[in-house]
């Protein structure tokens, strides 16, 4: 009798474990659905940007404003951070705390570099008198690129909190799930940047 009870208890436990895995997978899927909604959000901003791109109202055009090497530098920083972010996830899956923290740290530094470059660019434009109130084109430019920047900021905050969490508690089921979500989020931001790089900057340069 006692034997049977222990067996059924252990079945219940392993069932619970499977339920937890399934819940984790559901959470990851839910997060993916959220990312898809964010894609549509960016798509609306892209459409608005393209529609307003030529409405400079006598203000500067994209080609006059943007410095292409600078933009390439930003792009490289973000692309590399997307790669190191993947390496962080791989290390986390192997439960290697130090390695995970190293790659996450590197991702954070690269992300922060990207954000600083972007903010410096905004600041430079605004100081020249080309703020978002200047024209429809500039409103759309600041809003599209700024929304991406806001996402990057959230990602950086999240990364910092996550790193602290891993440092304190190690890599558990819960933290691994969150690292996965964060990793998806960060890769997603790089995917959005491909289109900002192409549509805002490269197309902008061609319009000179």
């Amino acid at each position: 009798m006692g034997d049977l009870a222990t067996t059924s208890l252990s079945i219940a436990k392993s069932n619970r474990k499977i339920e937890q895995i399934e819940n984790d997978n559901t959470t990851l899927f839910g997060f993916w659905v959220y990312l898809m909604t964010d894609c549509v959000l960016f798509a609306s901003l892209f459409a608005t940007f393209v529609v307003l791109r030529n409405n400079t109202f006598g203000g500067p055009t994209g080609a006059q404003l943007f410095s292409m090497p600078y933009v390439l530098l930003e792009t490289m920083a973000l692309l590399t951070s997307s790669f190191t972010n993947g390496l962080a996830l791989l290390s986390a899956q192997k439960r290697k705390v130090k390695q995970t923290l190293f790659w996450m740290g590197l991702t954070f530094v690269l992300g922060l570099t990207f954000l600083s470059l972007e903010l410096a660019e905004f600041h430079k434009f605004a100081r020249m008198g080309d703020s978002w109130t200047r024209s429809g084109f500039l409103s759309a430019y600041y809003t599209l690129v700024g929304t991406h920047g806001a996402h990057i900021t959230i990602g950086l905050l999240w990364m910092a909190v996550m790193a602290f969490y891993i440092f304190k508690r190690g890599i558990t089921r819960v933290s691994l799930k969150r690292i996965r979500m964060m990793s998806m989020f960060w890769h997603f931001l790089d995917v959005v940047w491909i289109f900002i790089f192409t549509i805002v900057y490269l197309f902008g340069a061609l319009h000179a």
Binding site: K17, Q20, L28, S82, L87, L89, Q93, G170, R173, L176
Partner: peptide, 27 residues
């Protein structure tokens, strides 16, 4: 931590080579 024992596998495992291929081709 008994909670940490479980591997989530709804996807085929991710390998280092995927990230390297993705990174270099994107570059």
């Amino acid at each position: 931590d008994s909670e940490a024992l479980v591997e989530v596998q709804e996807e085929r495992p991710v390998l280092l080579k995927h990230y390297i291929i993705g990174f270099i081709s994107s570059l």
